[in-house]
Write a protein that binds this DNA or RNA. Structure first.
Lengths: 349, 349
DNA sequence: CAATTTTACTTAATCGTTTAAGTAAATTTT
DNA sequence: AAAATTTACTTAAACGATTAAGTAAAATTG
């Protein structure tokens, strides 16, 4: 018995299996079916058995949105991040998805591409039932927080990595201050005296924390503040290349570079190669990065390795915990998961 | 006027703004509000103006699920991929999100972690209204297709990269056969005579296409089939390292390696380094990879670069086109976007 | 100006669930 | 055995939107 129309989608609705349909076939009310499927004590074992069996046979899957509408719960969370083609965020997303899945939650993804406007638009749109909560890493542009605060009045938000201390909620971070300090210490131990920290001009607490750690080490070792400084890069790879190249062609060029942003790595290597500046002989380089292939760079890249996957998991866990237990104070769920410094060829003495 | 309860979520419902509420405040019916917001010709300009203004003021956002339930359209697509911590998939996801966003669609993400069971469970759950369509790259285990075929009876599916020619729908691919051929040709031109293609044991059409292209080049150049062969790796990095190491410690070890899987790159480099086999002098290596940092590997990695972002975009576009135009035959939307071979240090003569 | 059409609404049903409240029959209690 | 309770259901309202169908008043037509 073929069932092909001459026009239309070609997709068969087959009068999608609903509770109503099950009720019809079994001569029961929809209420009974619903309760039977929910294993309610109000329904007799015999009826439950019949309902379950028919549901199985007809491949009944409850309409997600009908339930969401009724219960005011979507079993969906949103992940709002700047980009996904970045080892940190893709690993974090991995961790988030794992936890969401395990709890039967669905994961919506939104990329801000570092645009505050986009971030605002997303939060606004999500503020009406589509999700039960939000995991986010803010953009580099995010300097005001009203849009987040407004959203957070209605739904729980958990920050990870690029957190927002201004908002009282769970903040999943790594030890950025300490890592900035350790990176600088590491370079100093390797003999560097003119260390530059490359950052991107932004409002992020994590980069300022890293910079503060760096400054502390510089002070402790009484290094010259003229040479030891923070240099701002931006979102444009070609421009960053020029910035780094210009910096490295000065007579008093740095002998150590700390990149707080993974994507600057390539530009640093390229700029040095193109100017015949040898890493690590002429300049030592360490980056905040999670690329597993850092060890086969030329030379192997010393890194501060963030626990991206674990941070994603921790963030998702905190959010889901809050969703299960509505009296939970999310601010108490903040955790700091330490990063690890891995020394490789690029900082060899 | 503070509004803080002693218990509960702390999240303010503020009787979330609904059409009903707007209707109440303006002394109009919900139908009028709904139509005004949809800019219907049935509503007078004056009323529209009033409605729009109040909606703006109260920050009204339509409940997504109410509309979805009524219209049987969710404005949501699902992306089902093996993993996200992979340069191809993260770039593709980027392209997908861009297109979805531009069309006002939401993107759900599901990771199969290469498990067929997981893939089946996801499709089953999604088959009831949650999404309007699906973009997918199948797992390495996906050898049967009934679960996809079943889903595809109800909703449109578009495959990208790891496609499924058995299902009649859009398949967004790159020129895998040709690339397998070109990679082999490239190694042969560089002097290789004993070339091994490293793959992962699976059912994927793309890897078999690459292998076929490789075989063609081997035949054309009448290379010895004993040395020129396909070697299977798997999902376990440590095991792969051992497989490659064992292969490279044979007396008749290969002088050329083609890796069809990005993640094998590191194991190849490590195994060679650990055995003092010089790349490219002793063995030349080319990988299917999209890592932008391939050029600063040691030595720079020659790659077959897939147009991941473009493929993601093409896949999303095909799906959305089908969703807008239900009489579209998706199979006609299949496209092949060519990859590019980038020669670097790892295949130098 | 009576008849018709158009305008600008409202009423009420519906999407697929869940759930409070109701109810008849069976069971238990006293 | 009458009263009270429990069991296993059903009825109907709700969630928040959309939309077919209905309607009174205003505008247009012949």
């Amino acid at each position: 018995m073929l069932c092909v129309g001459s026009r239309g989608t070609g997709y068969i609705d087959m009068a999608t299996v609903t509770i109503k349909m099950l009720a019809g076939k079994l001569n029961l009310s929809t209420a009974t079916i619903s309760k039977a499927l929910a294993d309610s004590h109000e329904i007799s074992p015999a009826t439950k058995q019949k309902v379950l069996q028919l549901a199985q046979e007809l491949n009944y899957v409850p309409n997600a949105y009908a339930g969401s509408l009724r219960r005011h719960k979507s079993k969906t969370i949103a992940v709002v991040i700047p980009e996904v083609a970045d080892s940190f965020f893709s690993l974090a997303l991995n961790g988030i998805e794992e936890v969401a899945l395990a709890h039967g939650y669905h994961t919506l993804i939104y990329l801000t591409h570092e645009k505050l406007e986009r971030e605002k638009a997303i939060l606004k749109e999500l503020a009406n039932g589509r999700v039960d909560g939000l995991l986010m890493s803010v953009t580099v542009e995010t300097g005001t927080f009203d849009h987040i605060r407004e959203f957070n009045k209605q739904l729980p938000v958990v920050f990870f990595d690029r957190v927002c201390p201004e908002i009282e909620t769970a903040q999943i971070t790594t030890n950025d201050f300490e890592c900035g300090y350790l990176a600088a210490e590491h370079l100093i131990q390797a003999g560097c005296r003119k260390i530059v920290l490359l950052s991107v001009s932004n409002n992020l607490s994590i980069t300022s924390e890293r910079a503060k750690g760096f400054q502390k080490a510089v002070l402790e070792h009484q290094l010259n503040g003229v040479f030891c400084r923070v240099v701002d890069c931006n979102e444009d790879a070609a421009q960053n290349y020029e910035i780094i190249k210009a910096m490295m062609s000065q007579p008093d060029r740095p002998d150590g570079i700390i990149a707080t942003v993974e994507k600057l790595t390539i530009q640093i290597y390229l700029a040095c190669r193109d100017q015949n500046i040898n890493i690590p002989r002429d300049v030592k380089v360490i980056c905040f990065s999670n690329q597993p292939s850092a060890l086969i760079f030329d030379p192997g890249l010393s890194t501060i390795n963030q626990p991206a996957f674990e941070m994603g998991r921790a963030a998702a866990r905190a959010l889901l915990k809050a969703l299960k237990n509505s009296s939970l104070l999310l601010a108490d769920e903040s955790v700091e998961i330490p990063s690890t410094l891995i020394a490789r060829g690029s900082t060899k003495m």
